[in-house]
C-alpha cells in the first residue's frame, strides 16, 4: 500500500505573505492534500474550526498569522496566540497529538518560506507514529 499524503488544513490570515509570488502559489498552486482556509485575521480563527477539521479527519493543522506588532488589525494575532495556545493544551485531552498542530508567524520580509514549511510539516506528519486516536472515527462512522 502506498502511503497516502497527510491531509493538512492551512488557516491563513489574508495579509501575511507580502510577496505576490507566494500569494499566487497559495491561491493557485497549493498541493491537493492541503486545504487553505482564508480568514481576515488570525484572530478570526475559531477553535471550533480546528475541532471541525480534526473531526473531519485532518492529519495536521497549520495556522499562519502575522508577526506580533505587524498585525493589520492591531492585536488580532495576539488574541489568536492566547486562544490557540490554550486550545493546544486541550488537544492532549482529546487524544490529538500536539505536534500535529503548528502555529507559524510570518514576517512580511520573508519570501519563499511557506513552501518548505509545508513540506517539512508534511514530512513530520508522515514519519510520526503517533496516530491521532480521534481522527477518521467520526467520518468512518458516518460513512459506514
Amino acid at each position: 500500500m502506498t502511503q497516502k499524503k497527510p491531509l493538512i488544513v492551512l488557516f491563513q490570515c489574508q495579509y501575511c505573505l507580502a510577496s505576490s509570488l507566494d500569494q499566487y502559489w497559495v491561491e493557485q498552486e497549493l498541493p491537493e492534500n492541503v486545504k487553505r482556509v482564508k480568514v481576515p485575521c488570525s484572530g478570526r480563527i475559531d477553535p471550533l474550526y480546528i475541532l471541525n477539521a480534526i473531526q473531519g479527519g485532518a492529519d495536521g493543522i497549520m495556522v499562519c498569522g502575522c508577526m506580533p506588532e505587524k498585525c493589520h488589525y492591531k492585536e488580532g494575532n495576539l488574541h489568536a496566540r492566547r486562544t490557540l495556545n490554550e486550545f493546544r493544551n486541550f488537544l492532549n485531552t482529546l487524544g490529538y497529538p500536539q505536534e500535529r498542530f503548528v502555529f507559524h508567524w510570518m514576517n512580511i520580509d520573508e519570501r519563499g518560506v511557506i513552501q518548505p514549511l509545508l513540506a517539512s510539516f508534511e514530512e513530520r506528519l508522515k514519519r510520526s507514529k503517533d496516530r491521532p486516536r480521534l481522527a477518521n472515527r467520526m467520518l468512518n462512522q458516518e460513512n459506514g
Binding site: 488544513v9 486545504k35 482556509v37 471550533l48
Partner: peptide, 20 residues
C-alpha cells in the same frame, strides 16, 4: 460579507470528504 462559520465548516468537511 464573509462566509459565516457554518459555511466555513461545511466547506472544510466537503473537502475532507472528497479527498478521503
Amino acid at each position: 460579507d464573509r462566509e459565516n462559520s457554518e459555511e466555513v465548516v461545511q466547506d472544510l468537511w466537503s473537502w475532507l470528504e472528497t479527498v478521503e
